[in-house]
């Protein structure tokens, strides 16, 4: 609905929920100020760059998650996709393949697993939450069976410059994140495909009647999220140079939280990439700051959960008069 009545869709950088971005930005500034008063280490270049690098995978995955949620879907298996892709990347490196061969393999794995979710929801008509819960189990089974409880360690860091390098003063990871979000923005805002995503999120039945190939759009969108998870896996391996057993366990829920905090509607049809990016920044700053201030990082889930409740309640109260919310 919003996408259709949008007066100037092509020029919009800020979502229809612009107030959300501003509120989130203000919160980030306030939280950042509190942390930098509490800890002298918070507002240092090295700490912020470190936080940026640590948030690379979450940022990339959240971009794809935003597309899926705008389409009215959800994917809780994305951590499993990341894990399986990382393991395959690790095994490929161990088999002696060069980086330029490993990278496409990793991206391909992610895409295939994402498309698998898409087929489950689009063709087998399994509701996305159930489908991806199930495939999360399956992916973690694959992961345990392949990795067998051991780490894959000592992988080459051929792609490390993408994470750790700098271009001039700008960290390479920032450029990677911006490139990913720019690509997502082009897909969502400039291509007909993005319009289809919005249409399905607003009203799937109408989208079908208008002649949009709903099934294909769904599969492609889930595959895009899978592709981004594969990319995140590639960068994870480049950053850590190993694959550990609990890789990707919390990333799906964090990505969903970042997306929702950023103003994307869980009902679909409304969303903002900029908001998601701010949501990721918020979550990572929170994690980093709590550790620096000396508060147990266990409180972080409480804070994220509490904030989600507040944000969702505020949304619900604001949309009371909106017929769409019924």
């Amino acid at each position: 609905m919003t996408a259709v009545t949008d007066p100037r869709p092509a020029f919009r950088l800020v979502s229809p929920t612009a107030s959300r971005e501003i509120a989130l930005l203000a919160t980030i500034v306030v939280v950042g100020a509190v942390f930098s008063l509490a800890s002298p280490y918070f507002l240092t270049v090295s700490n912020l760059v470190q936080t940026l690098r640590a948030g690379l995978e979450l940022a990339i995955v959240s971009g794809g998650m935003t597309l899926v949620i705008i389409m009215g879907g959800i994917d809780v298996s994305v951590g499993g996709i990341l894990a399986v892709s990382a393991i395959i990347i690790g095994k490929a490196y161990q088999a002696g393949l060069p980086a330029f061969a490993v990278a496409p393999i990793g991206l391909f794995t992610g895409t295939v697993l994402g498309a698998f979710n898409g087929v489950l929801t689009a063709k087998l008509k399994v509701p996305p939450i159930v489908a991806t819960l199930g495939s999360m189990y399956v992916f973690s089974a694959i992961m345990f069976l392949v990795i067998g409880g051991a780490w894959i360690a000592g992988l080459p860091g051929t792609l490390s410059p993408l994470v750790n390098g700098t271009v001039g003063f700008v960290p390479a990871s920032a450029i990677v994140i911006l490139a990913v979000y720019l690509a997502c923005w082009v897909v969502l805002r400039r291509l007909p495909f993005g319009r289809h995503i919005y249409a399905i999120g607003c009203n799937e039945q109408s989208a079908r009647l208008v002649g949009i190939n709903v099934d294909r759009t769904k599969i492609a969108t889930y595959a895009m999220l899978g592709f981004l998870a594969g990319l995140a896996a590639l960068l994870y391996v480049a950053r850590m140079r190993n694959v550990e057993i609990n890789i990707g366990t919390s990333i799906a829920f964090e990505a969903i939280a970042a997306t929702i905090l950023g103003g994307t509607s869980i009902r679909g049809g409304v969303g903002s990439l900029l908001g998601t990016l701010l949501g990721v920044v918020f979550i990572r700053i929170m994690q980093n700051g709590l550790v620096l201030v000396g508060i147990s990082s266990l409180w972080e889930t409480v804070i994220i959960g509490g904030l989600l409740v507040i944000v969702l309640t505020a949304d619900a109260l604001a949309s009371r008069n909106n017929p769409r919310s019924l």
């Binding site: 087998l124 399994v126 159930v130 819960l133 199930g134 999360m136 399956v138 089974a141 345990f144 069976l145």
Partner: peptide, 14 residues
């Protein structure tokens, strides 16, 4: 291994 339990439950669910 517990992995098979996960896998079997996932397939059952879907």
């Amino acid at each position: 291994s517990a992995a098979w339990q996960l896998g079997v439950i996932g397939v059952l669910l879907i």
